[in-house]
């Protein structure tokens, strides 16, 4: 019919993958991944909130804190062996973390591809002449950075108070009160906890605001309230979590007045339990 004309046309930057069966197909697209991120975000947010509230037992004293910790292990003992529920819960958390991180990583990779000159960490360098942001706040722009740092912090936190493998902490298995105090008495450690929790709160602030959008459950009527809601949740978690290192550093939480089992060793606790 006519001479054909050759002219470059923007090619897709990613080819559509072979469609997998449901529900995996959902996870193949960015919108689906954002949905997964929002759902796992809600789960993780719930955990962080519960974790913070549970930790408030610290202020009741060593015995009560230890009892709380033991209670977690006892959940579900009527039907399944002890600690199975806790392990199931932990596996669920790990899965959520894994999905959350994988989705974040692949989405970021997609955006980097869509940007001629972006770097993985800030992701915002698009313009040679710089860009002047209007809507997005610091929390929104630093989700990848805050998420990464919080993730690394969690590893430290586990090593510190769950596995007890850090040489500079006098870890006593079964005595969470002692472990917390001896860890946070170190001011660099307290500072690390403070910084990490501020980043966590920022991450939660943008995440909580954003998840309504990703799930598509927002309504123009409540848009104003969404930001307040996200801010409140982030603030509650921030205040709760910051209180631990600050009060320990301030000397308001310490082992001076404690009674047994404060300072008892893991072996002694086991012996005690065995003796009952």
């Amino acid at each position: 019919m006519a001479t054909t004309m050759s002219r470059p046309k923007p090619e897709p930057i990613s080819k559509p993958p072979r469609q997998l069966p449901f529900p995996l197909s959902l996870y193949q697209t960015a919108v689906g991944k954002k949905w997964v991120m929002a759902l796992t975000g809600i789960g993780l947010l719930g955990f962080v909130l519960a974790h913070m509230i549970g930790n408030l037992h610290l202020y009741e004293g060593p015995v009560e804190l230890r009892e709380y910790a033991e209670t977690l292990r006892d959940i579900g003992t009527e039907v399944i062996p002890r600690t199975w529920f806790l392990w199931g819960f932990r596996l669920g958390l790990i899965a959520m973390f894994a999905l959350h991180i994988h989705a974040a990583y692949t989405l970021k990779a997609m955006s980097v591809k869509a940007n001629p000159s972006s770097s993985v960490l800030d992701g915002t360098k698009k313009y040679e002449g710089g860009q002047d942001f209007i809507a997005v706040n610091f929390a929104g722009r630093t989700m990848v950075a805050s998420g990464t740092i919080v993730g690394l912090f969690i590893v430290y936190h586990l090593a510190d108070l769950t596995w007890g493998v850090l040489p500079w902490v006098d870890y006593e298995r079964g005595d969470p009160y002692h472990n917390v105090v001896s860890s946070l008495e170190n001011w660099p450690v307290a500072l690390l906890y403070i910084v990490a929790n501020i980043l966590l709160a920022m991450h939660i602030f943008h995440g909580t605001w954003s998840l309504f959008q990703s799930l598509g459950i927002n309504n123009p009527r409540y848009n104003g309230a969404r930001r307040a809601f996200a801010g409140s949740i982030a603030a509650v978690i921030l205040i709760g979590n910051l209180s631990f290192p600050i009060l320990v550093q301030a000397g308001l939480v310490d082992e001076d007045n404690c009674t047994a089992p404060c300072g008892i060793t893991g072996e002694e606790v086991e012996a005690e339990e065995a003796g009952q």
């Binding site: 019919m1 006519a2 001479t3 004309m5 050759s6 002219r7």
Partner: peptide
């Protein structure tokens, strides 16, 4: 975009 002169018949 390319400056190419082309013919189309119909």
């Amino acid at each position: 975009l390319t400056g190419e002169i082309a013919s189309h018949s119909a």
